[in-house]
Write a protein that binds this DNA or RNA. Structure first.
Lengths: 189, 189
DNA sequence: GTCTATATTTTGATAGAC
DNA sequence: GTCTATCAAAATATAGAC
């Protein structure tokens, strides 16, 4: 296990504060106080507040992109790929609870990297949609609008970070399985 | 149709800006520019920036509370009540797209009214959970953890505001019906 | 790597003229 | 109801000493 650099520590603490109040409401003084140093000292490790947000969001967005590419290249059927997507979100969300908050709520405060992020996100959604369309074509899933299905599943998965920390008793494998039941098979008996 | 007061107009425009950048990142100068006046003039109609956020969030949260109370007092079964909840969210979200963003993302910036909001929200979730528990007990819905089911359905419904404006072609009755299929009956064939 | 001191902008908000 | 002028506080960030 590689030792955490001071910059990484700053970014980690910042992500936690960003989750609580949002990027704009967290000041460099807040962050410094949480680190036990003065605000000016932060700039020995990072160039700007913007840089911190860039790192949190882009690093995480690229992990989702990598995960989706692996899923796409697997030879699972539609339902199997959806299961893999659920597992990907449970895994990345549980590993990056704080980063997920920035990814969902503060991406609009990206500057130069904003378009790049939006491109990653739209590619991800396009891949997701095409999995659903294949499933409809092959008769694996119901013939409802793929856009609404994707929206429903994806917003649930993207909001996992709000909810995972409250449920430490629930292990992640069990959570994936329960979500698979609810999101795919429905709650109707 | 009662004419909109100047204060109501300010709150309406503010909600739109808050959706785009979040409460903290929107300045009174931004808001004034959007109204076509100077920042100082805003204070002839509202006491503070905080007051605007209070009005947006609390007004909307109370509408959800009222709606849930009506649903609870109906004699529908569990599935019927869930259908009503979906319709409530589709209706209120489509009528208050911008306000829903503040409700979801900026409630932590409430001050005195923050505890009141949190109470309304936890009461709402408690009512939701009890509907699911009744449905499990009566055998109407599957015996999965009610907490996970509620989380899954409610995060989807709470995120409708992100997605409704993009889908103006889809009418609201149809959207409710599709969500009912997907959230209740699942997407599995 | 952290500090103090400080520059520069921007913020929410008020006073008073029209 | 809106304006100009302004205040006081808070923001990001830099310079230079230790």
């Amino acid at each position: 296990m590689k030792k955490e650099t001071r910059q990484e520590e700053i970014i980690r603490i910042a992500a936690r504060l960003f989750k609580e109040k949002g990027y704009s409401a967290v000041t460099m003084r807040d962050l410094a106080a949480e680190m036990g140093i003065k605000a000016a000292s932060l700039y020995n490790h990072i160039n700007s507040k913007q840089y911190i947000l860039d790192m949190i969001i882009i690093t995480l967005a690229e992990k989702f992109t990598d995960g989706m590419q692996q899923i796409q290249s697997s030879d699972d059927n539609c339902i199997g790929k959806l299961k893999q997507i659920i597992e990907l979100h449970v895994k990345l969300s549980s590993q990056n609870i704080y980063g997920m908050a920035s990814l969902n709520n503060d991406w609009m405060h990206l500057a130069e990297k904003r378009d790049y992020y939006k491109k990653l996100r739209s590619n991800y959604e396009e891949d997701f949609r095409s999995i659903l369309e294949e499933g409809i074509a092959s008769g694996e899933i119901v013939n409802e609008k793929p856009e609404v299905m994707m929206f429903s599943i994806l917003t649930t998965l993207r909001s996992l970070y709000i909810w995972i920390p409250k449920k430490e008793d629930l292990n992640l494998r069990e959570l994936s399985a329960t979500l698979n039941q609810i999101l795919i098979k429905g709650i109707n008996k």
